[in-house]
Every structure is written in C-alpha cells, then in structure tokens.
C-alpha cells in the first residue's frame, strides 16, 4: 500500500474514532477540538521540519489567529467569517516575518522565531488598554454562517470544522510534500547550494512553506479561540511553541497523520495525567517524550507505519 493511501485510510479511521469518542463522552469534544487545532498548527511545523528547520516560535501565529478572532468578534460575530479572517491575518504576518527569517537556518531560524513570538507575547501583555494584558480577552458568543446556535450545537460545529480542516490540510500537505516544492524542502535539508545551481531559490521554497505553516497555525488559533472563548498572551509564550515541537516529535514527522496522532496523544495524556496526579502531569509528559526519543524516533506515526509495513509484507 502506498504511503498516501495508507495515510488517507488511517486518517478517515482516526476521524471516525474521534467522532465516536466525542459522541460517547461529551466533555471529550472540547479536548479533541483543541487537539485537532494543535495538530493543524503542528502540520505547518512539519513542512518546515522537512527542510530541516525547527521553529521554536510558531505559537506566535496561533496567538495571532486567536487574537484576530477576539479583536474582530465584536464587529464580525460570525465564525464562518472569523476563521478565514484569522487565517488571512496570520498568513500576512507569516509572509512579512518569513521574508526575514527565511534568510536564516538551523539554530538561528529556530531562535529568531522564538524571539519574535516572545516580542508578541510582551506586546499582548503590556498594551493592556488594547489587549487587557494577562487577563486576556473574552470571545463573545458567535453565530455560524448567520445561524444563532445553542452552546452545544456551536461546540459541535467548531469540532466538525476542526475535523474537516484537519482532513483538508492533511490532504493538502500530503500533495504538497510530494510536489516539486515539497521535495525541494528536503533538498534544502541535504544540499541547499545545489538548488541555487539548479536555478531555484531555496529561500523562496522555504518562505512558501513558512507562509503555509503560518496560515495553518492561524486557523488553529482561531479554532482555539472559538473553543475556549477566551484568549490570553500565554498562547504566544515560548512554552506554547515548545508544546507544538513536542507534539511534532511525539507524533512523528514522517507523515501528515503524525501531527494529529501526536496532538491527540498529548492532550489525552495531559488530561488524564492531570486528573490522576495533578502535580506531576508535566513529569509524565516529559517521560513520554523521553521514551519516544529513546525508543521510537519516528514517533507514533513511525511505530504505526512500521507495523503497517510489516503487516503488508507478511
């Protein structure tokens, strides 16, 4: 079975399981919507990882998407308009910042992104009269495509939107990674200079992926804002960016399903660990990451695809 086909089938299976989980355990709907949103943001990070670049500041775009919703909601109180608007703002921010950071590689690329996300965090915290500082901004009740929905129906709508977006972005990312642009990302990782001597601008290739990743993170931020109905500067804090990289490693960067598997596993471990041993959930998550790094370099996706490969070969 080819990789895209296996991913498509597993993706649909995971989507069906998520719907079942949300139906059988109503509180799970909230957790899974957040997990899907984070999976979308991590999918963008995966594009950059393909070029060997790790962004330690992509929570910046999640925060930009979330705050776009919070700022625009009073004047445009409709989720169907706010989602593309947040994606557009994050895309524009990604294009502007990407022009600068795409000149840098490796640790400089990672740390520049981190620095910019912390600058944004400080702005959100300090400009109290605009952002309400660390108190954050409450998102008012929203309509969905002009329809006024009760709370539960709205939550289902956001969950369904997150699921559809996850599937759509997953399919897009798979096609993108197999396209010349996607394969050129891998070429940046191994022999960037050769690309120059083939007439290709590596910077432009990386910038394109960066803008796409910002757009995806912006959508994720919008979904988070619509789900939590409250945005704070913590969305842009460095630990939030670290969390996205954590999920990328946990899920595995080898396939487009990895970010979603990682995000679901991360959120579930966090919820259950926090519920059972409230003071130790970070330690449990740390131990999980350690185990993945030591024994499953390909993450959850790597384990699954290896098993599927063995099954197909048997």
């Amino acid at each position: 079975m080819t990789l895209p086909r296996m991913e498509a089938l597993l993706g649909l299976l995971v989507a069906a399981l998520l719907v079942l989980a949300a139906l059988s355990t109503p509180w799970m709907k909230f957790v899974l919507t957040i997990a899907l949103a984070k999976g979308i943001a991590v999918l963008g990070i995966l594009l950059l990882l393909r070029a060997g670049q790790v962004s330690f500041g992509h929570a910046l775009y999640v925060a930009i998407g979330a705050y776009s919703v919070a700022f625009l909601a009073p004047s445009i109180p409709d989720a169907a308009l706010l989602l593309p608007a947040a994606a557009l703002v994050a895309t524009l921010a990604g294009a502007l910042i990407g022009l600068f950071v795409s000149r840098y590689r490796e640790i400089f690329f990672g740390m520049l992104n981190l620095a910019l996300s912390m600058v944004f965090y400080s702005m959100l915290e300090k400009f109290y009269h605009l952002t309400k500082g660390t108190d954050g901004i409450r998102v008012p009740p929203l309509t969905a495509a002009g329809m006024t929905l009760d709370r539960v129906t709205f939550e289902w709508t956001v969950f369904a939107t997150a699921l559809v977006l996850a599937l759509a972005f997953g399919a897009f990312a798979r096609a993108y990674l197999l396209s010349p642009m996607g394969e050129a990302l891998g070429a940046i990782k191994t022999r960037e200079t050769r690309l120059e001597f083939m007439g290709v601008s590596p910077r432009r290739v990386l910038l394109s992926a960066y803008i796409l990743s910002a757009m995806m993170a912006g959508c994720a931020g919008a979904l988070v804002a619509m789900t939590t109905r409250h945005v704070t500067p913590l969305l842009s804090y460095w630990t939030a960016s670290g969390e996205l990289v954590f999920i990328a490693i946990l899920g595995g960067a080898g396939g487009v399903l990895g970010p979603f598997l990682g995000a679901i596993a991360y959120e579930l471990v966090r919820v259950y660990a926090a519920a059972t041993v409230a003071d130790m959930w970070q330690m449990i998550l740390g131990a999980v990451l350690l185990l993945v790094i030591l024994f499953a370099r390909g993450g959850i996706w790597g384990l699954l695809s290896a098993r599927a490969g063995k099954g197909a070969g048997a």
């Binding site: 396209s179 010349p180 290739v205 394109s208």
Partner: peptide
C-alpha cells in the same frame, strides 16, 4: 533528476507530484 527537471520546467506547482 526530477528535481533538476522541475527546476528547469517550473518548480512552483504545489499540488502536482514531482514524479
């Protein structure tokens, strides 16, 4: 080789496969 051909023929086709 396909990447070299793509560089010549047009690399900015984000959805059509390299091969």
């Amino acid at each position: 080789i396909a990447l070299a051909i793509a560089s010549r023929a047009g690399i900015f086709s984000p959805l059509a496969p390299l091969l």
